[in-house]
């Protein structure tokens, strides 16, 4: 079935976040790696404040899709509009979008030669042209929020994986983004560190951040997502609210996938 372009449905027990605006609109997106058709006719509309979890087997194009949103990957056809700005080859538009879209990676991608504080203040100082003092205040605010202000003067290599990922979240938040993309944020973590990162993400979601999360953490999806997008072979196979998605998967491949990951 075609993915529906539906707005965040107000779910029981949640503050209703009726459509305040379209955060991301993807229309007819196609991408190829050489001859390989990685993304096939992707259509997805994300409203401001909506939390989307994207899941699917590895190689299904989930990461590639969200990496297209901040142009870490180029697309060959279709439209991506982020916060009213259409993504084209225009460098200024790419810059504009990257300023407003934060990203958290599977392998953190912190800068090992800079302290935690410097990691967090780098972009505010050099991209937003913020005075250093102000950038440090903001960084400290977000480091407190991810509960590691005491690590500010350490280097990333001195922190545990979970702490590093929380720094990465803080670093992205320091740019005060409107949208956060998470690319398998817990997949490279030791099991005992997954929870601290997920807790941070849950808090972020509760504050109303627009989030697109590629993850295999189905517990998180159930708890936080407004919608779950299931992808396979570069296509969106099924999207639905979590309750329906888990209780009544409609597509054969969704059922197969859920059968494999939910034992």
């Amino acid at each position: 079935m075609m993915p529906e372009d539906h707005a965040a449905s107000s779910r029981p027990g949640r503050p209703s976040r009726l459509a305040t605006g379209v955060a991301i609109e993807i229309v007819g997106l196609n991408k190829w790696y050489g001859d390989f058709h990685v993304l096939r006719d992707i259509n997805l509309k994300v409203m401001s404040g909506e939390r989307i979890v994207i899941c699917g087997p590895s190689g299904s194009g989930k990461s590639t899709m969200i990496r297209c949103i901040n142009r870490l990957e180029e697309h060959q056809s279709g439209r991506i509009v982020v916060d009213g700005v259409e993504l084209t080859d225009d460098v200024r538009k790419i810059d504009e979008i990257r300023r407003d879209v934060g990203m958290v990676f599977q392998h953190f991608n912190l800068f090992p030669h800079l302290t935690v504080m410097e990691n967090c203040t780098l972009a505010p100082i050099w991209v937003r042209k913020m005075p250093k003092r102000e950038a440090e205040d903001i960084a400290l605010h977000y480091l407190k929020r991810v509960k590691i202000p005491e690590q500010a003067h350490k280097y990333p290599g001195q922190l545990s994986g979970g702490q590093q990922q929380r720094v990465a979240i803080a670093r992205a938040l320091c740019m005060n983004p409107k949208i956060m993309l998470f690319d398998e944020p817990t997949s490279a973590l030791d099991p005992e560190m997954v929870k601290e990162v997920l807790d941070t993400m849950v808090e972020l979601a509760e504050d109303g951040m627009t989030m697109l999360v590629v993850t295999h953490e189905m517990g998180f999806a159930r708890q936080v997502a407004d919608r779950i997008v299931f992808m396979d072979e570069g296509q969106i196979i099924e999207t639905n609210v979590p309750e329906e998605f888990f209780a009544h998967p409609r597509h054969e491949r969704t059922r197969l996938f859920l059968g494999q990951i939910l034992r």
Binding site: L72, R99, N109, M175
Partner: peptide, 19 residues
């Protein structure tokens, strides 16, 4: 990943290279 991390926080080419 270092290039991607730098690009994702909005650094342009020269800033990314230099910093």
């Amino acid at each position: 990943g270092q290039y991607e991390g730098a690009m994702a926080i909005g650094l342009r080419y020269w800033a990314m290279m230099r910093l």
